[in-house]
Every structure is written in C-alpha cells, then in structure tokens.
Design a protein around this nucleic acid. Structure first.
Lengths: 240, 240
DNA sequence: ACAAAAGTGTTGCTGGTACACCCATGT
DNA sequence: ACATGGGTGTACCAGCAACACTTTTGT
C-alpha cells in the first residue's frame, strides 16, 4: 500500500469550465475513547495560512472511488485500521472554506478503539485531543467537529454503535462513561444498568477487570448475533 | 430571472486532472401534502437512457454558490417559491450513478404547501406523484427519495417542520393525516389531540372548515413566536 | 333520517427517575 | 483500616395506549 503524504489538500489553480471548478474531499472525524475521556484524532496543519493549527484527517476523493470508499481509504492509510465504523455526516460547501480554491468536503465520523489504533500507529504527526478542550481548528473543521459530535449523539441512541469505541470486553462503568462523555450528562448507575440489561443484548463474559485499585467489575460483550435476529423480527426501529 | 432549461445534467467530456473530474449537483426531493396524500414533485427525464422515466429536480451547482444556495435556486427557478424549508439529506457518489460521467449529487428535501405552489406554476413538465405509488425513478433517484423520506420521518419528530406542508390555518384532521402519511402509521385521534395541545403551541383561529359534508372542524395555526421563546428557555432539545 | 367526521375523559400500563446500603479489592 | 468504585431493589410519577358515545353539519 502506498503511503500517501500527510499534507493537507493542495490545489494547483487551472483554467476550467465552471462546472469543473470544484475539488471534492473527505474529512474524517475520528473519535476514540481513552481511559474515561472522549478524544478525536487530529493532524498538524502544514498549510501556511493555518500554521500551527490542528485539522481533521482528510484527502481528495479519487476518481475511481465513491465517498464511502474514500473515507475508508483515509482511515486505512493514516491509522492502518480496516473495517472501521464510518458514517457520513454532512457535506460542507462554503465558497471560502478553503484558501486554495473551491473545495467541497464531505464529513464522516469514525469510531475507533484506541487500543487497536495504538498497535498500528503509523504517523507521529497525529495526536489524540480531548474533544471538550478543543476551541478552534483549521479551516471550518471546528464546525465540522461540532456537527459530527451532534450526529454521534443522535446515532448512539438509535443503534448499538457505541461498542465500536470499546474493546470487545468492557466493564459496565466504561460503557456508562462513554455515554456520559458523548452526551455530556451524568446518569444514575442503577438505572443505567437496568436499562442496558433489559435489552438482553449483553453477554456476561464471566471475567473480571484486573489491576484496578478497587473492587473489580464484571466484563461484558455486546451480542451482535442476538441483535441481528431481534432487528429482523421487530421490523420497527430499535431504540437502544 | 433567467429561466434555465429544464433538461437534466449534460456534461461535455473534457480531459482534466483527476482531482477535477467531478461535477457537483443538487437534487431536491420536494414533498407536498395534497388533500390527504403525501406527494413528491417530479420532472420527466429527457436523457435518452432514462426516456419516459421520472426524476427529481436537480441542477449543477454554480461556482459562486454553496449547496444551500443552489438548492434554493433550483426551487425558485422551477416552482417560483422562495424561502422554502430545505434541508440537506446526504451526498450520493456512486461511480456509475450518472451515465454522462462522474456526477456527485447532494440531496435536499423541501416541504412545500401545495396550494402556494399552484399559484405559481411555471413548468408543465412537472407533476406531483403519490409517494407510496412510486416504484422506480431515473438514475439513483428512487434511493435518494427513500432516504429523504426516512430523514423526513426523523425530522418531523424532532421539530415543528411539518407545518411547512400545511396552509397557515389547518384542521386537526389534516395535521394528524400528514403525520400518518409520512410515518406510515395510524394514530388514535384522542391521544393525538391531547399530545399536540399539550405542547401549548397551537393557536385557535376561532374559525371553522367550510364546505365539508360533515361536521366542520376548528382551524388552528402554529405559534412560532411561542416556540422560539420555548426553545431559548429549555436549552435541551425539544421533542415535538 | 342518515352518513361522516368532530369533539371529549378515564383507566391501566410501562418506562423513567430518585434514592442508600453493603461488598470486594488494592494500598 | 481506609479509599474506591461494584453491585443491588423499591417507590413514585409521567407519559403513552386503549377505548365509546354524543354533536354538528350536508345530503
């Protein structure tokens, strides 16, 4: 696999028919959950006009791929991860959103397991940033981040995508913590457990947390098989 | 205002750098509610490969506008309506979705009041089609319609956008009917009224339906001022 | 008079929320 | 022993669903 340079989009101005005076890119908002905190993977911008600022991982779309494929390619090239959870958020098209010319970008959000990512680190210009600490980003990427986070908030309540942020086996506390981080609320522990267990979709792994300096919690996994069966039967949309 | 030709996108092949081998278009899914039935405004396709098929209203994006502006322009040019409710749904980018070349399209859905539209009819190749009767459309427009309808279903439950489909003054029956048409369910009349009234956002217009061959119902309007105040105060997201 | 839809309350159920004590582990 | 978070049950309340009869208009 060719290792593409990690620079931001760089466009050479050309004289073109108006219908073709656009470039199309994909920007990925890569969310990760790292020991209690929601983070996003950013790259240092090397465009002069955004010197020292951070930006999302993006690239121009290739002629032989669609947007979904482009977003997967970006994730693969930059993080080494395959088959990640990726979802289209919105397309951003302000006329002056990119200093180099007319670049329309489609935002995707990705949910990755930080531990998987660490095994395959490829690029030392990438860093995880605490989402709630981010004040500004290069281009219109702060707005893209905000809207992606909003989309994520909705989606985690519609389906069991949140497990993409956790390891296969996780504690109840971690699960509740991710919800709280993303939604920006705090929840009652007993009610949370009740609600989660009432779905019948968690499998008790008969295993315990280790190396915690308090009473260790049980580990669970999400039962995708049961979930798929349940989806087929109750055709109405499932609220997690 | 120049009256643009109503043909579908027509691209002259040019030799270009790969980054520019795209065209960008907007397709509008224009929903209307007409005497009890949910409809969508379609145009007869004049591309040879889609002869006789219907398609959504679309056009290429102009270099001096963003996607939101393009969608408003399309609606204005084709229906004469301004300031319509328009919302971005998704961007469709299959490699072979358009026979003339690589065209990426962003779908918007619009909600129009059919009576307003009829006052300003501009184009006799446009026709309203009953949404539930549509089996297939040109290009990938059936998929775009399906996903737009799905987006509409979600959105009408998150905010009071449904009133864009009705006249300013409407009967309780019409309101319930639009919900039922869009969601594809039937609801209990008493519970529906209770729920709607409990928001406190309907204004009794002290007026009655006319020329119906049964007991006439009261007419109501949606109180946007009260709604805006309510939104400010309760910062949490309002469920309609 | 008849047909068609408007208008109107009560009851039961379900799901959400609030809340406090004992337990297992590491230091 | 102490600190830290794990594990557990109950009672209340609000919102949703089910359900039937009388009223008003046009024909």
């Amino acid at each position: 696999m060719p290792h593409r340079k990690k620079s931001n989009i760089n466009i050479t101005p050309v004289q073109l028919a108006p219908e073709f005076q656009f470039a199309l890119s994909v920007d990925c908002v890569i969310f990760g959950y790292d020991r209690g905190v929601l983070k996003v993977l950013l790259i240092e911008s090397d465009l002069p006009s955004f010197k020292g600022q951070w930006s999302l991982l993006g690239d121009l779309m290739h002629p032989d791929e669609n947007l979904d494929q482009a977003s997967h390619r970006i994730l693969r090239e930059r993080t080494g991860l395959k088959d990640m959870f990726l979802e289209q958020v919105k397309t951003f098209s302000s006329i002056d959103r990119h200093p180099a010319g007319r670049v329309i970008t489609t935002a995707y959000f990705a949910l990755v397991n930080v531990r998987d990512y660490q095994l395959k680190k490829l690029d030392h210009n990438l860093h995880w940033h605490v989402v709630s600490d981010i004040q500004s980003l290069a281009f219109d990427h702060k707005e893209i981040l905000d809207q992606s986070l909003e989309a994520l908030r909705k989606k985690i309540q519609e389906g069991p995508i949140i497990f993409n942020l956790l390891e296969k086996k996780f504690s109840m506390r971690d699960l509740q913590n991710v919800f709280e981080q993303i939604l920006g609320v705090s929840m009652d522990r007993r009610n949370f457990r009740k609600k989660i267990f009432s779905t019948g979709l968690l499998k008790d792994e008969e295993e315990m947390e280790k190396q915690v300096n308090h009473r260790p919690g049980k580990l669970y996994s999400f039962n995708y098989e049961t979930y798929e069966q349940l989806k087929k039967k109750s055709s109405s949309d499932f609220r997690f």
